[in-house]
Computed example of a mutant assay.
Amino acid sequence: MSDKRNLMKQLRYILLPSILSLSACAAVYTDASDSSHVTFLNSDGESISSLTKKAKAYCAQYGKTASFRKSDTQLVAVFDCNWPQASPR
């Protein structure tokens, strides 16, 4: 049992830094994202225009368009996924 506990402790010290370093490589959308909105963790300081392109691609899979909602901090950016508006006649 002690060996198992030691192994888990060692894995934690290896995996946690690995995951953090991978997430620091690029802005990634979070699990909080869904068909209504996309939330990015922007750890590398990508521009809003770059994130907008990624948000448009994400929302497009639901047939929607992306619009920037807010940036709570420099690390979090939120985009809404909206239905395209019908063209006026």
Rank of each mutant, 00 (worst) to 15 (best):
M1V: 14
M1L: 11
M1E: 14
D3H: 12
K4T: 15
R5W: 05
R5H: 10
R5S: 13
N6H: 08
N6D: 15
L7D: 13
M8D: 06
M8Y: 13
K9H: 09
K9A: 15
Q10S: 12
Q10G: 04
Q10H: 08
L11T: 01
L11D: 03
R12M: 12
Y13D: 15
Y13G: 09
Y13K: 12
Y13T: 06
I14H: 03
I14V: 13
I14K: 07
I14S: 00
L16T: 06
P17I: 04
S18C: 03
I19G: 00
I19N: 01
L20P: 01
L20F: 04
S21Q: 09
S21Y: 07
S23D: 14
S23I: 11
C25Q: 13
C25V: 13
C25A: 08
A26W: 13
A26S: 12
A26Q: 07
A27N: 08
V28L: 12
V28F: 11
Y29P: 05
Y29W: 14
T30E: 09
T30C: 07
D31S: 11
D31L: 12
A32V: 01
A32Q: 10
S33H: 07
D34R: 03
D34W: 05
H37P: 00
H37L: 14
H37V: 03
V38P: 02
T39R: 02
F40V: 02
F40N: 00
L41C: 08
L41E: 14
L41A: 12
L41M: 11
N42I: 08
S43K: 12
S43W: 12
S43V: 04
D44H: 03
G45K: 10
E46Q: 15
S47W: 02
I48M: 06
I48G: 04
I48D: 07
I48T: 11
I48N: 10
S49R: 07
S50N: 11
S50L: 05
T52R: 11
K53P: 00
K53S: 13
K54D: 15
K54L: 10
A55T: 04
A55R: 01
K56G: 04
K56I: 04
K56Q: 15
K56L: 04
A57M: 02
A57Y: 01
Y58P: 02
Y58A: 05
Y58V: 04
Y58Q: 07
Y58K: 01
C59M: 07
C59G: 06
C59E: 09
A60H: 10
A60F: 01
A60G: 06
Q61I: 09
Q61M: 11
Q61H: 09
Y62D: 14
G63S: 06
G63D: 10
G63N: 13
K64G: 03
T65R: 10
F68L: 15
F68S: 05
R69M: 09
K70D: 04
K70W: 01
K70M: 01
S71A: 15
D72C: 00
T73K: 01
T73W: 02
Q74C: 02
Q74R: 10
L75H: 12
L75S: 12
A77H: 05
A77L: 04
V78E: 06
F79Q: 08
F79P: 02
F79R: 01
C81Q: 06
N82K: 15
N82G: 05
N82A: 09
W83V: 06
W83R: 07
W83G: 08
P84K: 15
P84I: 10
P84L: 14
P84S: 11
P84W: 12
A86Q: 13
A86M: 08
S87Q: 09
P88C: 13
R89K: 13
R89E: 14
